[in-house]
Design a protein around this nucleic acid. Structure first.
Lengths: 197, 197, 197, 197
DNA sequence: CATGAATGAGACTTCATTCAT
DNA sequence: TATGAATGAAGTCTCATTCAT
């Protein structure tokens, strides 16, 4: 389900507004994007936006938290039926690359950028890092994953995935990321697995 | 004061301005930081900035490009005397973590953040990614590093390092990063090295 | 309000802004007038101006070029149906003095002042000098007007008119200028006409 | 005597400053010229200016009033030994055109421009208009000059001269103005003289 | 005396938000 | 409900003037 398109069918320009907002927020930052920019590109009057959101930051925050919660939930639902650490990692990579390719701008907005503008809102939202940490800690408990500070291991895991997306976004990788799912999952596994013997 | 050591340079507030600017740019973003903020925190009048820089963005760009060039040059000088891929990776990790710990804010400004505000300036600056790519490509040529799209391998390499710094910055890792140099370098090596048949 | 007469046009503060701007530009110069001045005297917020003009200079230029084109066109339409140089001069004087008396400030802005601030804009606008030069050159061709460098003759012609307006503006002439139309036209004619052997 | 070069021989940059100031004030207006502009073009430090003048406006006013007084006095001394209106007019034209050609920028600063910026200073300085009015009134008394409102006649007289200078300054007259002295004086005389009989 | 960095008031401009139509 | 002109606080930048060196 495309998370940007609300399932309530109203005769509203809301989806246009949201899609445009993500596009511009990614391109120019939240502070760098004006209401006029969004209104013009979404073919809406400036005032129209305030029918749906209390403020620009409210829009930015809504876009962020709603979609990030959704993405994290989807990730959890896909990854955790798997029972081995290796399989979980593979699913995590697959799901991440798929999300990126389906909507690079939204993925960038949710995952690739830090939003200092949103710090005023609660920082306790659920995010994919939680899934990563769970995979690591469960894997360490079961002996599948090497010992070490879990945050370091988790960072090495998720940092690589994030960076691949960034580099793809900058145009340095031409094929679809899904092509690299297996290879990347293998690399992460080589990095994290506990040496047998 | 030793009269032999340049007593001619005017006492300028430039260092204060630059230090403060990095601090605030990291904390609130470039767009989110005002000239007034910088002036107040640096104990300088607002106009003082404009004796040294044409505009706020000019300051941001100067801070970015100058220091990034320097860091990249240092990195190259440290890494490339080494002759094996494994050693180079270790030096790269060590140098990165040291740079982070010496000046987390500057490192964050240079490496951890994407600056959409600076896109108007030339995108052809030298940056550490170039060093990473060289390590990867040289290592693949010599057979030390596994086959695969170099940008993907490079992203996995550098993405992990970046992420460790981000997580440290958010306070989730308490020890100094230099403690993890060996461990992280090993993990990257496990991930990248070509399986010896 | 008669619904047949355009009830659609939004009630805009544009006319207030323009009237006030001319007033202040004449009184204090363009550079000497601030946006705050205009806003206060026009009872408008400072930002209102920027809905209609890109900048203060843009406003100044618009005011200048639009009205000057209009005035020149009117002048041409009044003067050039006449067929003798003497009549044309009389009409020119009459039209000039009438324009001055109808709106001294606008006339001053268009004709009496040099605007170094507007030099950045095209200098190729149409202005009343063109009408003067045409009267002179046509009159010289037909033998009605004395020989001599046309720009010198034109300057003597139009300079007098301009100066009369300036002196009136400074309060040294108390009667309406239209009273002097005949006298001034005669003087110009005495100055310019070719002596009939 | 060049009025811009002080007869006290000090080792000072004052003449440079004054010449530069006139140049820039004419080119960009007083408000449009900055102290930095003047300092840079005169090869002086910004602060140096304040050794000679209390403020920028003080400089502008000094330049204006001193030189205008001088010019008016010279004019009076040249014109008033003459005993007929016609001769006086000729001398006035000659002196004006000579002054323009000797130093167009200074003449422009004194005569061709209105300085709304200087209104804060006394408006009761002596200026060439007084000489003009004296010529007109004396001429009317003696019957040499036609009847009519003296300010109107004076404006017609001096307005032409001013305009010729302006048009020359804009480059539309290529020969030196002194070439036109006789012709212009004749025209003014034709315009102002009382018809005999 | 000269220099030019610093000051800080105030100019121009932007833009999130409101509100009459 | 939509529109977009208006608001006005706040941001960026300028520049006359001061003052330590």
């Amino acid at each position: 389900m495309n998370i940007l398109i609300s399932d309530r069918k109203q005769n509203t320009r809301l989806p246009d507004i949201m899609r445009t907002a993500v596009h511009l927020f990614v391109k120019k930052g939240i502070d760098g994007t004006t209401i006029k920019d969004i209104a013009k590109e979404a073919n809406v009057a400036e005032g129209a936006l305030y029918r749906h959101f209390k403020s620009k930051d409210d829009l930015a925050w809504h876009l962020f938290s709603t979609n990030l919660n959704q993405f994290t939930a989807d990730l959890m639902a896909t990854v955790y039926p798997e029972t081995t650490a290796q399989k979980r990692i593979e699913k995590f990579v697959e799901e991440s690359f798929t999300a990126y390719e389906q909507n690079p701008e939204l993925y960038s907005y949710l995952i690739l950028q830090e939003h200092s503008e949103l710090e005023k809102y609660s920082q306790s939202y659920i995010h994919p890092g939680h899934v990563v940490m769970k995979i690591i800690k469960d894997g360490q408990k079961s002996g599948e994953i090497r010992r070490g500070e879990p945050y370091v291991l988790g960072s090495m895991f998720v940092g690589g995935i994030i960076r691949v997306c960034v580099v793809k976004m900058y145009g340095n990788i031409s094929k679809g990321l899904q092509k690299y799912t297996g290879e990347v999952a293998d690399m992460i596994w080589d990095m994290l697995n506990a040496p047998t013997s």
